[in-house]
């Protein structure tokens, strides 16, 4: 068995375990930390798929920024206790069934739409996934969305600051 396949299996197992841990962990802090681990393992998958830049960005943005923010809020609001009231068992069963339903439907979709067609892939180019080629693409074909993204961020920043300060005034 090739080394890549072994890595894939290990990473996949890690990803799923961590994701399940996020969902079922009683302590929100543990959930957050497990989510960071999930992100790391997904970044590992990205590396396997020759997406080095995206892998790095994933770690920086998610594991670095978003998760820190989440954990920060958890600490700030003093929610790091596992005192979350549990839902009734009935709701849990329905939720599980629904999630299973989604999974089955998606598998069915893949069976019908994806597998039926002959999926002959194309060989990847020499510079696939390099920052250079990604940048070239980003600043030529996708320049408009890229610039618009900055406006989105500005709006998000303004929104976050606005929401944060007004609540103080209200008090």
């Amino acid at each position: 068995m090739e080394i890549q396949n072994i890595i894939f299996i290990i990473l996949s197992a890690l990803t799923l375990m961590c994701a399940l841990g996020v969902v079922f962990s009683k302590n929100p802090i543990h959930s957050g930390l497990l989510l960071v681990l999930t992100m790391f393992s997904i970044s590992g998958h990205y590396l396997l798929l020759h997406a080095q830049f995206v892998a790095i960005v994933n770690i920086i943005v998610y594991a670095g920024a978003v998760m820190v923010l989440l954990l920060f809020v958890l600490m700030l609001l003093n929610l790091n206790k596992d005192n979350e009231p549990q839902k009734s068992i009935m709701v849990k069963i329905i939720g599980t069934l629904s999630a299973g339903g989604i999974m089955i439907s998606l598998v069915a979709v893949s069976k019908i739409f994806l597998v039926q067609k002959s999926m002959q892939g194309r060989p990847i180019a020499e510079d696939f996934g390099y920052v250079k080629s990604l940048g070239a693409l980003l600043f030529t074909d996708y320049i408009l969305p890229f610039e618009l993204a900055s406006i989105l961020f500005l709006a998000a920043i303004v929104g976050a600051v606005f929401l944060g300060t007004r609540s103080v005034e209200n008090k």
């Binding site: 939720g95 599980t96 629904s98 999974m103």
Partner: peptide, 10 residues
């Protein structure tokens, strides 16, 4: 994805 949905629901 399904794990995410599950988490949201329960």
């Amino acid at each position: 994805f399904s794990i995410g949905i599950l988490g949201i629901l329960i």
